[in-house]
Design a protein around this nucleic acid. Structure first.
Lengths: 173, 173
DNA sequence: AAACACATGTAATGCGTTACATGATTTA
DNA sequence: TAAATCATGTAACGCATTACATGTGTTT
C-alpha cells in the first residue's frame, strides 16, 4: 500500500510522468522504496481512478507523448494524512545473511566470494550516495534538506555494511 | 524463491516442524528473512512435493500432532548449490524514509513523533540482538559462530539507525 | 470451565516480478 | 538506416498478507 504514497510523495515534489517516476525511483526515493515501471504505471492508473492525481498530455513537448501527473487537492490531503501516521517497521529479506547463516557448510573461498561481491555492491552504492549528496548540498531548500537526510541514512547504512564485511572477512580468514 | 532456501538452511541446522520454523523465523534466521506461518506451511508442502524434505509424524510426543521435517540428500544438495551462488542484492522498502523524504510538508512535532517511534523500535531490537548474542557466545560450535556473525550484522544495523536518528532529531530541532 | 499455548492448515486478495508488445524520436 | 533512448502499456504468474477455520493439550 505504500507504493501509492511513495508516488504521491514524489509528485508532491514535482509533477512527473510515469517514466520520470520510474527513473526517479532509480536514484532518490527509489533508494529506499524500489518499484518497477510496471508497478508505477499500474498504481498511477489507480490513483487516477481514485481521484488522487490527474494527468495532462504534455503539449508542445518534443519526443513521444507524455502523460504528466500532478496531485489533486484530495491527493495532497491523503498524502498529508499518511505522512502523519506512524511508519510500519520495514520488512527485511536479505539473501546474503541467509547464506552466511548457513555458511558453516561452505569452504572459506566460497564464503570469501560471497562477501567480496557484497563489498563491491556496497562500495558502489556508498559512492553513489555520496555523489548525490554533494549535488544536493548545492541547494539550500527545505525539500533538499530532507532529501539529504534520507541520503545520509543510506550513507550510514552502507558504512555499517562495509564495517561488518571487514569484520566478517577477518573472522573467516 | 529464497524462502525455500531459508527453510532448508534452518532445517540443515536441525529438523523442525512448521510451528518450530515459524517461531524460529521470529528469533534468528527470521531477523533477516521474515515469513509468516502460512508461507512456511505452504512452502514446506512444496518442498515435500519436490522431494527436498521429508516428514515424520512425531510419535511419543505430548501435545498435538507434529510433523517434523528433515532434509533429504536432494535437499542438502540443493541447499549447497544455492549457498554457492552469488546473493541477490536485497530490496529495500522502508516506509519511514519515504515519510522523511516528504517531511518538508510536516511540522517539527509530527516529525519528532515519527523519529521517536523508530528510535523505540530500533532500541528494542538492538537489545534483543545483544541478548541473543550473549546466549550464543556460550557455544563455541562452528554453527554458532556463523549465527553470531549474522547477529553482529543486525547489531551494526541497529547502531547505524540510532546514530542516524540522533542526527536527524538534532537537525529538525 | 475458561483461557492460553501449541499446531496445522485453507481462501481471498493484493503486491511484485518477468515477459511481452508497441511506437516515437534522437543519435551514430 | 540501424541502434539507442524515450515513453506507455498488457498479461501471466508467483509470493506475501490478511482473515478465517479447526482441533489438542496445559494451566488457572
Amino acid at each position: 500500500m505504500s507504493l501509492r504514497y511513495a508516488i504521491l510523495t514524489s509528485l508532491a515534489n514535482q509533477p512527473a510522468s510515469g517514466w520520470d517516476l520510474a527513473r526517479h525511483f532509480g536514484r532518490s526515493i527509489g533508494f529506499f522504496w524500489q518499484a518497477s515501471h510496471q508497478q508505477i504505471y499500474r498504481e498511477l492508473r489507480r490513483l487516477d481512478d481514485d481521484g488522487l492525481v490527474r494527468t495532462e498530455e504534455a503539449t508542445g513537448q518534443r519526443g513521444p507523448r507524455r502523460k504528466v501527473y500532478h496531485l489533486t487537492p484530495e491527493g495532497r490531503e491523503a498524502l498529508l494524512n499518511w505522512l502523519q501516521t506512524p511508519a510500519a517497521e520495514s520488512v527485511v529479506r536479505d539473501e546474503l545473511l541467509v547464506k552466511v547463516f548457513g555458511g558453516w557448510q561452505l569452504e572459506p573461498p566460497q564464503l570469501r566470494a560471497l562477501l567480496d561481491q557484497a563489498r563491491t555492491d556496497h562500495t558502489d552504492r556508498l559512492a553513489q550516495y555520496r555523489e548525490l549528496d554533494r549535488e544536493l548540498a548545492q541547494s539550500t531548500s527545505r525539500k533538499a534538506r530532507f532529501a539529504r537526510l534520507t541520503l545520509q541514512r543510506g550513507i550510514f547504512e552502507e558504512e555499517a555494511w562495509l564495517k561488518w564485511l571487514d569484520q566478517a572477512k577477518a573472522e573467516i580468514g
